[in-house]
Amino acid sequence: MTSFCPESDAVNCAVALERLDCVWIDPVPDEPLDADLSAAMEHVRQCSACWTTFEKRRECDARLAMIMQTILVPVGLREQLLARTAEMSVDLNINTDAILKTGNDLPVNGKPLVEKLGHREGTYEAALLRRRAWTITTAAAMLVFAASGSWLWHAMQGRPTSVQTLCELTPLTAEGLPIVQDLSQLPALPQSWPRIKGLKIIGVPCWFQPPGSKTAASWIPFELRQPKSKPIHGVLLTMLRENVLDPPSELMVQSALLKYAHRAGKPLSVAGWSEQGVVYLCFVNDEPAAIERLMKLTMPTAA
């Protein structure tokens, strides 16, 4: 590999690649790098073997990040956390001042925090029993969700939905939507998305069925964070092209913006396009400039 490298280069291939392994970086960095990273980047640009490895690692990293973050959060966890902290607010007065100050096994009034909480509820076994009951309840709830999600999917044959209906009725929060239990049922993400730096799925994919329609769409919350740019939060709706009455055309940044309106007092921009038989609608609670930035990154040649 080193035979590809300029002889004057002080950074060898392994060191350069190791340094760049620590940062999410574009081929053309959009922010100043420190001296070591700049030298590593310069080396990789001039070394064809390193560049090939670097590119493949970036692609692998994007996939790893996507899969790493795709985890279903248990139903009811939020409520459980709220309940436990509310219980603490009432009468528990544990001194945890030592916590975070040392890395040792920290006592709380002479006992570990979890043990102390166990005592407060009677016995540790009682706490365990309660958690098991909660787990069983959660599992039952998950089964109900799974059944409803499956029912939705099998019941959704036929009647195409208009883009306008989807634009107007797609919710921006997951409240009340059935969770996608089997991720393999989801359609493909836009081809370029796994390679877009800073773009990730931030919640649990759900199914959305527009009222009056028998067609369900997958509902995927996402977030785009890039240096020096305002974060973009939104929802990607995907649906088979044949199930959409008036599917949008292939992706063109200029024509992708379908709608700009206000919902609940906030600006809402919607962009849409078709890609390999799937219709994508992108909802962003922001001005059109934000979604245009995302569309430029989504263009097949951009990522």
Binding site: L183, S184, Q185, L186, A188, V278
Partner: peptide, 11 residues
């Protein structure tokens, strides 16, 4: 893997 469908191809 099953995630291949999520990232690469329509299912």
């Amino acid at each position: 893997t099953t995630i291949q469908a999520l990232i690469i191809t329509p299912t």
